[in-house]
C-alpha cells in the first residue's frame, strides 16, 4: 500500500486536531484512506494502527462498527441507496431491485458483514445505507458522491447513464 505524499500530508494534518489522544484520530484517518483507496483493506488497518501507535485491533473494531467503512473494494461506480423510513416508504426497495436489474447485480449473497454487491463486469456496486438526510426528496441515493433525488424505477436508467 503506497500513500501518496499529498494524502500523507492530509493525514498528518488531521492527526494534529487530536493532541490528547491519538486514538481519537482513527476515524478521520480512516475516512481519508477510504476516500483515496475506496475501501479499508487489512493493510490500511495495520498502517493506521502503526501510524497512531495503536494495536491493529483498536482500528479494526472501529472499521467493523461503522457500516460506512467498506472492508472490500467496491465497483468503479459505487451506489448507496437509502433505506431509512422516508425512503423505504417512498419505494427505495423497488429502486434497489431496479438498479440491480439494470446494472446486472446479484444481491443474494450480501449479509451484515458483506453488504456490497457488484455487477459482473465490476463497473457498478451497490449497497443499502441509512439516512442520507434528504427525506423531503425521497427516495434518494448517492452515486459516488452525487446525490440523486426522487428516484423512480423509470428514471434510474438516466441516472446510471451519466456514469
Amino acid at each position: 500500500m503506497e500513500i501518496p505524499a499529498e494524502l500523507a500530508a492530509r493525514i498528518d494534518e488531521a492527526i494534529t486536531h487530536y493532541p490528547v489522544s491519538k486514538r481519537s484520530a482513527v476515524l478521520p484517518v480512516l475516512h481519508l484512506l477510504q476516500e483515496h483507496f475506496r475501501f479499508i483493506s487489512e493493510e490500511a488497518v495495520a498502517w493506521t494502527a502503526a501510524k497512531l501507535g495503536l494495536e491493529p485491533i483498536k482500528v479494526l473494531e472501529v472499521v467493523t462498527f461503522y457500516p460506512g467503512f467498506r472492508q472490500e473494494a467496491p465497483g468503479k461506480v459505487h451506489i448507496r441507496v437509502c433505506r431509512t423510513l422516508a425512503c423505504a416508504m417512498a419505494g427505495s426497495y423497488e429502486v434497489m431491485n431496479k438498479f440491480c436489474e439494470v446494472a446486472n447485480i446479484d444481491r443474494s449473497h450480501t449479509s451484515h458483514h458483506h453488504p456490497i454487491a457488484k455487477s459482473d463486469d465490476g463497473k457498478f456496486s451497490i449497497e443499502f445505507v441509512e439516512c442520507l438526510a434528504s427525506c423531503g426528496s425521497a427516495p434518494v441515493c448517492l452515486v459516488e458522491d452525487d446525490l440523486h433525488e426522487r428516484l423512480t424505477t423509470e428514471n434510474l436508467g438516466d441516472v446510471l447513464a451519466k456514469y
Binding site: 495503536l54 485491533i57 479494526l60 473494531e61 467493523t64 462498527f65 451484515h112 458483514h113
Partner: peptide
C-alpha cells in the same frame, strides 16, 4: 495487550482475538 475487542455492532457484535 489489546488482543481482544468487539467486532461489528448490534446483534452481530462478537468478541475477536487479534485480527
Amino acid at each position: 495487550q489489546f488482543v481482544l475487542s468487539m467486532h461489528g455492532r448490534g446483534f452481530n457484535a462478537k468478541i475477536i482475538k487479534g485480527l
